[in-house]
């Protein structure tokens, strides 16, 4: 079992340690830790020789980064144009209500995070959602409970 510091060192060892590596390093940190922990961000800033404000600016500018711990399963509900027209908003509300979570946040038990996405790129099967790497197309609000079930513990 690697410590947090070892995990971070493994990530940093893959890069040259220049400012341009900031976004890919943050992506790797998020992949590894599931969010961007504050202590790790401080180390990243030091090693890439960029200010902590710049790290924070990048981490808050881009949608994929989370400064809060995220749930074990990431639910992404598409709100692209085709999904919007086919009830994507109803879908995200239903999922949120079922799990008692607002989009952009994680459930209390950290089992799920709920996010909305600009477009997942499977517009012909709107409305669409993803749980982790699995797509669920042609969704309807009444399909939600059955789909969520296997992911609940």
């Amino acid at each position: 079992m690697m410590t947090s510091q070892q995990k971070l060192e493994t990530i940093l060892s893959r890069y040259e340690g220049v400012a341009a590596d900031l976004i890919p390093v943050l992506q790797d940190v998020q992949d590894e830790f599931n969010y961007l922990p504050k202590d790790e961000l401080k180390i990243v800033a030091g090693r890439l020789q960029v200010s902590l404000t710049r790290v924070y600016s990048v981490a808050t500018f881009f949608k994929m980064f989370s400064l809060e711990p995220r749930g074990k399963h990431l639910i992404r509900v598409c709100l692209g144009t085709a999904c919007h027209l086919r009830g994507g908003q109803h879908l995200v509300e239903t999922v949120g209500r079922r799990l008692n979570v607002e989009p952009g946040h994680a459930t209390e038990d950290l089992q799920f995070s709920l996010e909305t996405v600009g477009c997942l790129g499977s517009c012909a099967q709107a409305p669409l959602m993803m749980i982790d790497a699995k797509y669920f197309g042609r969704m309807a609000v009444d399909k939600v409970p059955k789909i969520l079930k296997p992911y609940k513990q």
């Binding site: 341009a20 992506q27 710049r54 990048v58 980064f65």
Partner: peptide, 25 residues
């Protein structure tokens, strides 16, 4: 490959370049 981090504006070429240089888009 350079992976985007989720910003529509990065489709604009100068914003895309800024993010590839490790800055906000």
């Amino acid at each position: 490959i350079s992976k985007g981090a989720g910003a529509f504006v990065c489709g604009e070429e100068t914003a895309l370049i800024a993010s590839m240089e490790g800055d906000i888009g």
